[in-house]
């Protein structure tokens, strides 16, 4: 991309400002966004646009969570973009999860059959507004996928709700085993 055009792109977010603004976030989401608390998602290496858009969804009450919503309520777009840029720039650490090999192998088959890599990319690293899944926490993955299936977890354009409909609870368990064990 020609350097001339850089200023046209969405305002250059400030990673260092993001680090300071994210000090409150890492209490739950872990150092550099590598979470260890059960049910809390890791944010390290998430696409910046994904983190930014989810913060917007929480602030606008289109996604609700008792812990998360109050934090998002007080952030402006600039804060969100800085925080997103900070987490996006962090290295993910090796996930602590130990997958059941048989369940993980079954999960890989479900993953391929349901084309998860079409949007999340083949390595499940995410892109733009679509999250990185590789190494995400097992509990969190389980809760989100069940939420998409039963309609309690809203998504932006309906793609995930639709994708989750044909998954059985066993499919979801297997998927979570495979994904959570990815490095």
């Amino acid at each position: 991309m020609p350097a001339l055009l850089l200023p046209l792109l969405a305002g250059a977010a400030d990673i260092e400002a993001g680090r300071r603004k994210a000090e409150v976030c890492v209490a739950c989401h872990g150092p550099a966004g590598n979470a260890t608390l059960p049910g809390v998602p890791s944010l390290a290496a998430q696409p910046a646009m994904y983190v930014f858009f989810q913060l917007i969804q929480f602030r606008e009450k289109r996604r609700n969570d008792a812990q998360m919503s109050p934090f998002a309520a007080n952030l402006n777009d600039r804060d969100m973009q800085d925080i997103a840029a900070y987490f996006s720039a962090q290295q993910p650490t090796a996930p602590p999860f130990v997958a059941d090999p048989a369940k993980a192998a079954a999960g890989k088959i479900v993953l391929d059959a349901h084309h998860c890599g079409s949007c999340h990319l083949p390595g499940l690293t995410g892109q733009n507004h679509i999250p990185r899944l590789a190494g995400q926490h097992y509990d969190y993955l389980l809760k989100q996928l069940l939420g998409f299936k039963n309609g309690s977890r809203p998504d932006i354009d309906g793609t995930m709700s639709m994708a989750a409909q044909p998954l059985t609870e066993q499919d979801i368990e297997h998927l979570a085993h495979y994904i959570a064990g990815l490095k």
Binding site: L8, A10, G11, M49, F52, F53, I56, D77, C119, Q127, N128, H129, I156, D157
Partner: peptide, 17 residues
């Protein structure tokens, strides 16, 4: 190739060219 990400924000005037 994949669809462009959706527009979910209101950009400040400084980013409207």
């Amino acid at each position: 190739l994949a669809p462009n990400p959706p527009g979910l924000t209101a950009k400040p005037a400084s980013e409207i060219h």
